[in-house]
């Protein structure tokens, strides 16, 4: 049996918001029964439209928000029934790399004392050991150690992102959740940071949870892919397989702008309605129902279950039908 460093089971996350004239409480489901398993050294990429719950999932896993229901297991420690101390211990093993280093680094604190604080409160190291650890980590991410005396705004964007990575890896975690780590960077810097992430994974065996909108980067990085739509897993499975032939119409629609990325171009689906309407949100049906070209009545009535086909799991009532169609398409 494979050993998983991170296991999440049926995670649900609901937000309460007040809306309307009467300020009634309404529940918004940000995550709906999301389960995932992450083995050591593996990369799981999460893709989806905006507001699909990608970032929420990341934040729930690193412990910056608590799930409404569901259980998380980090390195064998089950979090929900663990004591506060144990939970803190476990959360050290899963760390977040923030999207925008401009905002996640405190503008008024020097890099060094920022990293030092992180170490002081999470490890028993003394001042000298901490200093050595900081130097070592900075070297690992490729930042000259004299830059540690600076404030974040004195660094280039690339160096700032490296510091954000250093801050995440300095506690020697097992899992890194990277929420759009490359989105705000220039092209040449993106490649530098991507290479750094790959190098770190190679050398230190991190598992990544890679949240991104850049499908090219996802294809490059990921072993596994999870496709989210309105907090629900639509498709999940091996990256190569998924990029070769996406099954779910939603995944196909996601890839539609990037035909060069996927194996067979007939897999592209052009969705009916191009935009998600702001008002109509299906309560019990498939979240993609209103836009799906294959949708029928059954899609409106019930949420499809994740079903496994080989190494890809798809949540769609119409899988067989669609597969038959593309089979036909390929023949002629």
């Amino acid at each position: 049996m494979t050993y998983y460093v991170l296991e999440a089971d049926n995670i649900n996350k609901e937000y309460l918001t007040k809306s309307g004239v009467l300020r009634m409480d309404t529940r918004i489901k940000a995550l709906n029964n999301v389960s995932l398993k992450l083995a050591r050294g593996q990369t799981l990429a999460i893709i989806g439209e905006s507001n699909s719950g990608k970032s929420t999932l990341g934040r729930v896993l690193v412990g910056s928000e608590t799930p409404s229901t569901g259980s998380i297991r980090i390195d064998g420690t089950k979090l929900d029934d663990a004591s506060t101390r144990l939970r803190r211990e476990a959360h050290r093993k899963i760390r977040l790399i923030f999207q925008n280093a401009n905002q996640s680094l405190n503008p008024r604190i020097r890099i060094k004392s920022l990293l030092d604080d992180t170490l002081r409160f999470n490890t028993p190291l003394n001042a000298e050991q901490r200093d050595a650890k900081i130097k070592e980590t900075l070297k690992l991410v490729g930042v000259r150690s004299e830059l540690a005396e600076r404030y974040p705004h004195m660094l280039s964007m690339g160096d700032r992102q490296r510091i954000a990575i250093a801050r995440a890896i300095i506690l020697e975690p097992l899992v890194l959740v990277a929420d759009e780590p490359l989105a705000h960077l220039d092209m040449s810097i993106q490649a530098q940071i991507l290479n750094l992430l790959l190098k770190l994974q190679e050398e230190l065996g991190f598992s990544y949870l890679f949240i991104s909108n850049d499908l090219g980067m996802v294809k490059h990085m990921a072993d596994e892919i999870m496709v989210l739509c309105d907090g629900q897993v639509m498709e999940q499975g091996n990256s190569r397989r998924l990029f070769h032939l996406p099954n779910h119409p939603y995944t196909r629609a996601l890839f539609s702008g990037h035909p060069s990325l996927i194996g067979s171009s007939d897999a592209i689906v052009h969705v009916k309605k191009l935009y998600k309407s702001a008002t109509s949100k299906t309560e019990k049906g498939c979240p993609f129902y209103s836009r799906c070209p294959f949708a029928s009545q059954s899609c409106e009535k019930s949420i499809p279950e994740l079903e496994y086909h080989d190494d890809v799991a798809v949540a769609c009532h119409k899988t067989n039908e669609i597969n038959a169609l593309s089979e036909l398409h390929r023949k002629y």
Binding site: S64, L96, F98, T118, F121
Partner: peptide, 13 residues
């Protein structure tokens, strides 16, 4: 702001 969230993840006090 995100930097506070980041700090709270580092030092939850």
């Amino acid at each position: 702001k995100p930097y506070v969230e980041a700090a709270l993840l580092d030092v939850p006090n």
